[in-house]
Simulated assay, not measured.
Amino acid sequence: MSVSNTDNKFCAFLRGVNVKGTNMKMAEVCSVFERAGMRDVSSVLASGNILFSSEKKAQELKKVLEKVMSEHFSYEAYLFVKSRQEIETICYEIPFENDSQYHIYGFVGVDGVAKTLMSEFYKSKKVVGEKAQLVGCRFYWKVPRGNTLDSEFGKILGRKNLKSFFTSRNINTFEKVLKRM
């Protein structure tokens, strides 16, 4: 009999779900995760945040889940598996004050991607009030509401050559995920 604890709870953050023609029902995604052996599967919002439990390590889970998602939905799946502790860190280390005029994003991805994102941010033309900051190995971005996709950095984030390296979520989404874990 297995007992669920916080050490084996994860969230898979899927890249590019329900945008640009890659549409999925979260109930179907949860079913794919269950068939792959994940337990306690549920979704948070419709943007590809899947909570689950497993005894496996995050790197192994990433490979297994990308494979089954790619096969089931006939697309090249990218996802990033984070533990409850990692999500807590993302939420607790936000470097920006909450401000209703801005969106604040946290990024999850492969090791080292935060420095790449920071470099790209420095090179990009900024809109007024747009900021980015590294905290440890995490990258955060603050952008005025309505400018996320229109800012030069926002366009850089959508480049196809970067899609396998990271995904981002509004900080509010990370907080909702954490509450459900």
Rank of each mutant, 00 (worst) to 15 (best):
S124T: 13
G129C: 04
V64F: 03
R39F: 00
S100K: 08
R138Q: 02
T22E: 11
Y105Q: 04
K56W: 06
G21C: 04
L14Y: 01
E76G: 14
D111S: 02
R15W: 10
Q85F: 06
Q101G: 04
G21D: 07
K163N: 14
F13R: 10
E120A: 14
E28Q: 01
G146L: 14
G154Q: 08
V17N: 01
K179L: 10
T6M: 10
S119Y: 00
A46L: 11
F139V: 05
T167L: 00
V17C: 08
K125T: 13
R35V: 02
A27Y: 09
G158I: 04
C30S: 09
V110F: 07
D7E: 14
M24N: 03
Y92A: 15
N5I: 09
M69L: 13
Y92Q: 15
N147V: 03
N161Q: 04
Y78A: 10
L134V: 10
R159G: 11
V41Q: 09
F174M: 13
S74C: 11
Q101H: 13
Q85K: 14
E34F: 01
T22L: 11
V81P: 05
I50P: 05
L134I: 01
K25S: 02
K155T: 06
K82Y: 15
T6Y: 08
I90D: 06
Y75Q: 06
V113R: 13
G112L: 00
K160M: 11
M38P: 08
I94C: 14
Y122G: 02
D7P: 02
R138C: 04
E66H: 06
F13I: 15
G158K: 12
V32N: 11
G48L: 02
H72W: 03
N172V: 13
E60A: 10
K82W: 00
G154P: 04
C91V: 15
G16Y: 06
F121Y: 12
E152I: 03
E130P: 12
E60M: 09
F33R: 01
K56M: 15
L162S: 12
K123W: 01
Y140T: 09
E55H: 06
M26F: 09
K155R: 05
S31Y: 10
V177M: 10
S53F: 00
Q85T: 12
